Amino acid sequence: MKCCKENEYQDRNRMSLTIIADPSLCMFHFCREDLSGLGHEAWDPYIEGELFQYVERFLIAGNVAMNVVSLQELRQCGVCVDYQVIYNQCVGVN
């Protein structure tokens, strides 16, 4: 079995997705189809200033991510803001 450096392992398991946040309502929406809910209409609440923590909790609870690495603003359209979520995906989960 070939060993790899820790950062090489992390890079192979690092993934990204996009979310939309509406700060005026403190709600966020996953743009990824399997996380966007019935009819792609699911919006989840968060507490102001804690969007990162809420996104991370959701992805960990759904066995999508081991952890979230970063939340980076991509663009703003009206009151909504698009973010790129970088996370380490769960591996070997049955």
Score class of each variant (00 low, 15 high):
residue 44 D to P: 00
residue 48 E to T: 07
residue 86 I to H: 06
residue 47 I to N: 13
residue 24 S to P: 03
residue 5 K to L: 13
residue 22 D to W: 00
residue 49 G to A: 03
residue 46 Y to V: 01
residue 44 D to K: 14
residue 65 A to W: 05
residue 50 E to F: 10
residue 90 C to G: 09
residue 82 D to P: 04
residue 73 E to V: 08
residue 85 V to G: 04
residue 29 H to M: 08
residue 43 W to C: 01
residue 60 I to T: 00
residue 46 Y to R: 01
residue 67 N to V: 09
residue 34 D to A: 00
residue 82 D to K: 09
residue 93 V to M: 11
residue 80 C to V: 04
residue 53 Q to K: 14
residue 47 I to V: 14
residue 34 D to N: 00
residue 63 N to M: 07
residue 70 S to E: 09
residue 5 K to N: 13
residue 28 F to S: 12
residue 2 K to W: 07
residue 10 Q to L: 12
residue 55 V to D: 01
residue 50 E to L: 09
residue 85 V to C: 07
residue 16 S to V: 13
residue 36 S to K: 04
residue 78 G to Q: 03
residue 11 D to E: 15
residue 30 F to C: 08
residue 9 Y to W: 13
residue 39 G to N: 11
residue 28 F to V: 08
residue 39 G to R: 01
residue 61 A to V: 08
residue 40 H to C: 05
residue 90 C to Y: 06
residue 54 Y to P: 02
residue 32 R to T: 14
residue 31 C to K: 14
residue 48 E to H: 10
residue 17 L to F: 04
residue 49 G to P: 02
residue 91 V to M: 09
residue 56 E to S: 02
residue 56 E to W: 06
residue 69 V to N: 10
residue 18 T to L: 08
residue 76 Q to I: 13
residue 76 Q to E: 15
residue 88 N to P: 03
residue 38 L to R: 12
residue 61 A to D: 13
residue 75 R to I: 08
residue 57 R to V: 02
residue 86 I to C: 11
residue 56 E to P: 06
residue 11 D to C: 11
residue 61 A to W: 05
residue 35 L to R: 00
residue 64 V to K: 01
residue 12 R to C: 12
residue 88 N to R: 09
residue 56 E to R: 02
residue 26 C to P: 01
residue 67 N to F: 08
residue 30 F to V: 09
residue 23 P to N: 06
residue 82 D to C: 05
residue 62 G to L: 07
residue 69 V to Y: 07
residue 75 R to P: 05
residue 43 W to A: 05
residue 14 R to H: 05
residue 9 Y to E: 14
residue 82 D to A: 13
residue 2 K to E: 12
residue 15 M to N: 04
residue 92 G to H: 00
residue 54 Y to M: 08
residue 81 V to C: 10
residue 46 Y to Q: 01
residue 61 A to F: 08
residue 75 R to F: 07
residue 59 L to F: 02
residue 21 A to L: 03
residue 63 N to P: 05
residue 42 A to Y: 03
residue 24 S to R: 09
residue 90 C to D: 06
residue 73 E to Y: 04
residue 32 R to D: 15
residue 60 I to R: 02
residue 55 V to K: 01
residue 51 L to G: 00
residue 89 Q to L: 12
residue 23 P to A: 12
residue 90 C to V: 12
residue 52 F to W: 03
residue 80 C to I: 04
residue 45 P to F: 06
residue 93 V to Q: 10
residue 11 D to W: 08
residue 43 W to N: 04
residue 11 D to N: 10
residue 49 G to T: 01
residue 26 C to W: 07
residue 33 E to A: 13
residue 4 C to M: 13
residue 53 Q to H: 15
residue 56 E to I: 03
residue 66 M to H: 13
residue 49 G to C: 07
residue 59 L to H: 01
residue 56 E to D: 02
residue 63 N to L: 03
residue 50 E to P: 06
residue 11 D to P: 08
residue 61 A to R: 10
residue 76 Q to K: 14
residue 54 Y to R: 07
residue 13 N to R: 12
residue 20 I to G: 01
residue 40 H to K: 13
